[in-house]
């Protein structure tokens, strides 16, 4: 009910501004945790097509989320575009985002939006197993993420406990396999000499440099390395279909309730969910599209063929995961 109400208000606003605000040059202000190299080109296209000026504060997703919480309703931002769902959740906990209209939310499968309709995914990033093709073979690579804790992989695996995507993944493991099994896995992984990295790209680099043989990064970093160096000696794959090791995380966008330029802001979200923008994410940033009918990036399998059945909202218990990681001395 509140959502329909909000969307009705939004539509009314849209009509009003559409009717009487034509002469005003419109702008929209975004706090973007997505860096300019990824977000800039598509925002420029939006600006060119709609004439709405886009002003962007680029920064680190987590830092922008904390800053938004500190600014509260005094923020100048209309939109918050985040690299991960965790940051959107943190902003939502402060009660800052507005509920998005159904017309936008319905554009994506339920998997790609949150239950209360305060944010919607703009692209998907898969969790994968990256490996060195020289030091592993198809037979020796594990079929399940849980196998990585076994003896043959001792000291050969890297992960990034501080990374939002990794944490979302641990939450998924808890949902799928239960807290006890996950805690067990985290402990045995540590005992097995798994190395901590600060982020996904350093995992991939470390595999190339021979420091580790296998790692758990997001899927698209490898393509960045390959675009600068086609011989880059790292490959990646999913675990066996349905394994908890396969997961799609999202980058997503929320509109702030305090925004005074909601029409323009909604237009921008609408554009990011358009076929054009989604094609851009697949082709230029190698991410998964969040709307139906667009192929997977760079020859990867279609997401729902490999990903276990899980609800993204179930990934909201970040606190439980953080407690678990802290208890294990990983944070």
């Amino acid at each position: 009910m509140p959502r329909t109400y909000a969307s009705a208000v939004a539509i009314l606003l849209a009509l009003c501004i559409g009717a009487c605000g034509e002469s005003e040059p419109q702008t929209v202000v975004i706090y973007s945790g997505r860096s300019e190299s990824l977000a800039g080109p598509i925002l420029e296209r939006f600006q060119a097509q709609t004439g709405i000026a886009v002003e962007v504060r680029y920064g680190n997703t987590a830092q922008l989320a904390v800053a938004l919480s500190e600014e509260g309703i005094q923020t100048e931002a209309d939109l918050f575009w985040a690299q991960d769902a965790g940051a959107l959740g943190a902003v939502q906990e402060e009660g800052l985002p507005a509920t998005l209209p159904d017309s936008l939310l319905d554009r994506v499968p339920e998997y790609f939006r949150n239950g209360s309709g305060t944010w919607v995914a703009t692209s998907g990033r898969a969790r994968v197993l990256a490996y060195s093709p020289e030091r592993t073979t198809a037979e020796t690579r594990p079929a399940s993420i849980f196998d990585l804790a076994q003896e043959p992989y001792a000291g050969r695996v890297g992960w990034a406990p501080a990374n939002g995507s990794f944490q979302a993944h641990v939450t998924a493991l808890r949902t799928i396999a239960g807290d006890e099994a996950t805690q067990n896995w985290l402990r045995t992984m540590q005992e097995n000499g798994t190395k901590n990295y600060s982020n996904n790209r350093t995992i991939v680099q470390a595999i190339a440099d021979g420091e580790i043989d296998l790692g758990l990064p997001n899927h698209y970093y490898l393509y960045r390395f390959l675009s600068e160096d086609p011989d880059f000696p790292v490959e990646q794959q999913f675990f066996a279909a349905g394994d908890a090791g396969n997961l799609i995380n999202v980058a997503g966008i929320a509109m702030l309730a305090s925004s005074t330029r909601q029409t323009a802001a909604l237009k921008l979200i609408d554009f990011l969910l358009s076929e054009e923008a989604q094609q851009y994410f697949v082709q230029e940033t190698y991410e998964y599209a969040v709307i139906e009918g667009i192929e997977s990036p760079a020859g990867l399998p279609v997401a729902n063929q490999v990903v276990p059945d899980i609800d993204l909202d179930a990934l909201s218990d970040l606190d439980g995961t953080l407690d678990m990681l802290r208890e294990g001395g990983l944070l």
Binding site: N60, A62, Q63, V66, S69, Q167, L322, L331
Partner: peptide, 10 residues
């Protein structure tokens, strides 16, 4: 920094 980055915890 992990506190800020991981848990958005001011």
């Amino acid at each position: 920094y992990l506190q800020y980055a991981a848990s958005y915890d001011r």
